[in-house]
Simulated scan of single mutants.
Amino acid sequence: MSGIRDWRNLAYLLRGSTVQREVYTLLQQLDIMNVLAEYEPMLVGTVPLGIQVESSDLDIICEVYDQEEFTVTVRRSFGQMDDFCLVTRLVDGIPRCKINFRAGGWPIELFAQPQGTGRQNGYLHMIVEAHILNLLGNEFREHIIELKSGGMKTEPAFAHLLSLNGDPYEALLALGELELGELDSICKRSYSNM
C-alpha cells in the first residue's frame, strides 16, 4: 500500500489541491522538514489525503530517542510561534512528546516518539486511508469530509462509513494488515451496504 506514493517527498503536495500547494509553501518557508531532518519527519493526516476541513491541523510525526535534544531544537526554531505548547508524557511506558503552535494560519502539531515514523500509527492510518480513498473514489471522499465537517475525527469517520466495529483506530490498523484483495473486498462490500 505504501508504494503508491513517497510520502516523505513533499513534492506530491505541489500536484495537489490549492490547499496542499499552500501547505507545501508554508512548510518550505518554515524550513521545518530540514530543521527536523535528523528525526525523519513526515507530514501525515488529512492534508496529504486531501480530506482536510476548516478545523484540520498539520500533523508531523518524528522519530525521537532523546526528547530533551528534540525539544531544544524545536524551541530554538519554533518557540516564538503563536500558541507554542509542549507536552511530554508516558503512554504504555513509551515517552511521547507533542508540540503545538500556529504558523501561516495553520495549527501545527509535532508528535515525537522513539519509533520509526514508518511504523507509527499516524502513518499506518494514513496509508490504509489513502488506499481506501483511492479504491472507493470521490463519493466516499465527500462523505468522509462531510462527517469531519460535522465534528467527527478522521478514523471514526472511516470506521463509520465502513461499518467497522470496536475502536476505530485499532480497526483501521487491522485493515492495514490485510492482503490487498481482502482489504478491497471488505471495503467495497461494507461501503456498498451503506
Rank of each mutant, 00 (worst) to 15 (best):
A157K: 00
E155C: 03
R141E: 02
V44S: 07
Q67C: 06
L164F: 03
L124W: 08
G137D: 11
L136D: 01
N138V: 07
G116F: 13
V91G: 04
S77V: 13
T73I: 06
I60G: 05
G105E: 07
R96P: 04
P41L: 03
W106Q: 12
R102Q: 15
E170L: 06
E129H: 01
A112N: 12
T73P: 09
V74Q: 08
E109V: 04
V91Q: 11
E139P: 14
N121E: 07
G104M: 00
A103Y: 07
K98C: 10
F140E: 01
G150K: 02
I99P: 07
E69C: 13
D57C: 09
N134F: 13
M42G: 07
M42N: 07
G116Y: 15
G122D: 01
K148R: 14
F70A: 10
G122R: 03
D66L: 09
G79K: 13
E63W: 04
L172Q: 09
E63S: 10
F84V: 09
D167Y: 01
H131S: 00
I60Y: 09
S77R: 15
L161P: 02
E69K: 15
M42I: 08
I51G: 01
I127Y: 10
H160K: 00
F70Q: 00
L43G: 05
V72I: 07
Q52G: 00
G166R: 00
A159P: 04
A159V: 01
E146M: 03
S56W: 05
F78R: 12
M152P: 01
F140H: 00
E170G: 07
D66W: 07
P48T: 07
F101N: 03
I132H: 04
G93R: 07
N134T: 13
R96D: 02
L86F: 10
I145P: 03
G166V: 00
D59K: 14
L164Q: 00
C97Y: 11
P168K: 01
V64R: 11
L43V: 06
Q113L: 09
R89N: 09
L147F: 08
A112T: 12
N138I: 08
I108V: 15
S149I: 01
L90G: 13
R119M: 09
D83A: 13
A103E: 07
L173Q: 04
T154K: 05
T154Q: 04
G104E: 06
V47R: 05
L90A: 15
F111C: 02
